[in-house]
Simulated assay, not measured.
Amino acid sequence: MLEGPLMRRLSLVATTGAVALGLTLSACGSNSLSPGGSGGGNNTSSAPGPTGTVDQALAAKLPAKIKSAGKIVVGIDPTYAPNEMLAADGKTVEGWDADLFNAVAAKFGVTVDYSPSKFDAIILGVDSGKYDIGVSSFSITDQRKAKVNMVSYYKAGTLWVTKPGNPAKIDPNNACGKNIGVQTGTTQFDDISAKSKKCTDAGKPAVHILPHDGQNQVTADVVSGKADAMLADSPIGLYAIKQFQGKLEKLGDVYDSAPYGYVVPKSETDFANALVDALKAAKADGSYDAALKKWGVESGGITDFALNP
């Protein structure tokens, strides 16, 4: 699903050793995925029961399906460190996005089942009822709001990343003929596709787009030199630079800032509004800020949580 040039999701197996190091450095949560479920989104396993104070008024607003099951099934693409990723055990979902949603789910008194999926299949999964909600750094766009409800909870922009010193002399506004990595299904994919069209319309070579289903593969291409640069959400780009010390650097400034949103079925407006209230409650009790601070992403925190802003 490719929507608008605003940013992903605005969306590391760099070398196996490098990614293992990156994941080991980050530890949180205990939301396990079933082995072998890292691509198809067909396997889930329950996270431990919620902690914190349950808001009975919010719990009463849960859809009947979730009340009956006692859990929220979440579609997630765990290749997007530090937002959502797999821990070194290969099955535990961690990251600030997961930490935050766990705090939100605690307000409802339910557990969370994280179900792995390709990013561009999550909205379809929510719409079909496969998932109760999508939590995977989705940027809120008009195209997405036309299909599902979206609840804002964070704000990020697009950032370009390249090798130190920018050896390929990449200009984000004129990358004609360059090898550029991007995750499939993201609005960054639309962004670079539009830039490539501008190149060909001007009689210049098209951008050589190197797409991957997972952001980890995109980052690996830049680290190895296969790609000259990549574009991704700002927290992801900055995290990759930190994890691969001395091998990557940012290129230019963050642009096209927009809010992230939880993806909720169009038919579940009451649930979506309850998520807004749960986010407000998490902000009030400090769990919202704690989740962001733990991962160093406080700069994108918001207070104006809303349905379909």
Results as ranks from 00 to 15, higher is better:
294 K>F: 12
121 A>G: 06
236 I>A: 05
194 A>W: 08
162 T>A: 04
256 D>I: 07
66 I>R: 04
110 V>M: 02
214 G>H: 13
19 V>P: 07
48 P>D: 13
187 T>M: 01
131 Y>N: 09
58 L>E: 07
161 V>M: 08
99 D>K: 03
156 A>E: 03
304 D>P: 11
188 Q>W: 00
220 A>N: 01
199 C>K: 02
83 N>H: 04
187 T>H: 05
12 L>C: 03
226 K>W: 05
240 A>F: 07
31 N>A: 05
134 G>P: 01
233 D>Y: 12
18 A>L: 14
176 C>H: 03
273 N>D: 12
36 G>D: 05
51 T>L: 11
50 P>W: 10
221 D>K: 02
247 K>T: 15
308 N>H: 09
193 S>Y: 09
65 K>L: 02
54 V>A: 00
95 G>L: 03
124 L>R: 15
46 S>M: 07
158 T>N: 15
229 A>K: 01
139 S>Y: 13
74 V>I: 15
290 A>M: 04
94 E>K: 13
218 V>T: 15
162 T>N: 06
217 Q>H: 10
127 D>L: 02
32 S>D: 02
299 S>R: 08
171 D>L: 00
19 V>A: 14
132 D>E: 12
47 A>N: 00
46 S>K: 12
175 A>K: 03
176 C>A: 10
290 A>N: 12
277 D>R: 09
173 N>C: 02
33 L>I: 01
58 L>V: 07
65 K>P: 00
86 L>P: 05
52 G>P: 10
184 T>V: 14
138 F>Q: 01
251 L>Y: 14
97 D>Q: 07
108 F>D: 12
292 L>K: 12
92 T>F: 01
118 K>I: 10
78 P>D: 11
167 P>F: 02
180 I>Y: 02
195 K>A: 13
5 P>W: 04
264 V>R: 06
249 E>H: 14
7 M>Q: 13
99 D>L: 08
271 F>M: 15
234 S>A: 15
167 P>T: 00
166 N>P: 09
199 C>E: 13
228 D>E: 08
289 D>H: 09
27 A>R: 04
70 G>W: 13
27 A>H: 10
224 S>M: 12
142 D>N: 10
150 M>N: 03
130 K>P: 00
296 G>M: 10
113 D>N: 12
145 K>N: 14
130 K>D: 05
180 I>K: 01
282 A>T: 02
193 S>K: 15
286 G>W: 11
309 P>W: 06
220 A>Y: 06
233 D>Q: 14
14 A>W: 07
247 K>M: 15
164 P>R: 08
302 I>L: 01
167 P>L: 04
146 A>R: 01
280 K>F: 13
187 T>A: 15
231 L>Y: 07
10 L>T: 08
15 T>R: 05
70 G>K: 03
119 F>Q: 07
27 A>T: 06
306 A>L: 00
290 A>Q: 05
120 D>P: 08
233 D>M: 09
272 A>E: 06
171 D>I: 00
190 D>F: 09
107 K>H: 13
34 S>M: 02
294 K>D: 14
302 I>H: 02
107 K>G: 12
118 K>W: 05
21 L>G: 14
37 G>E: 00
27 A>L: 08
209 I>S: 09
13 V>C: 10
120 D>A: 13
76 I>F: 00
39 G>L: 11
6 L>E: 07
71 K>E: 03
194 A>F: 06
287 S>A: 04
84 E>Q: 14
228 D>N: 09
175 A>I: 02
106 A>C: 11
240 A>G: 08
191 D>K: 13
91 K>F: 09
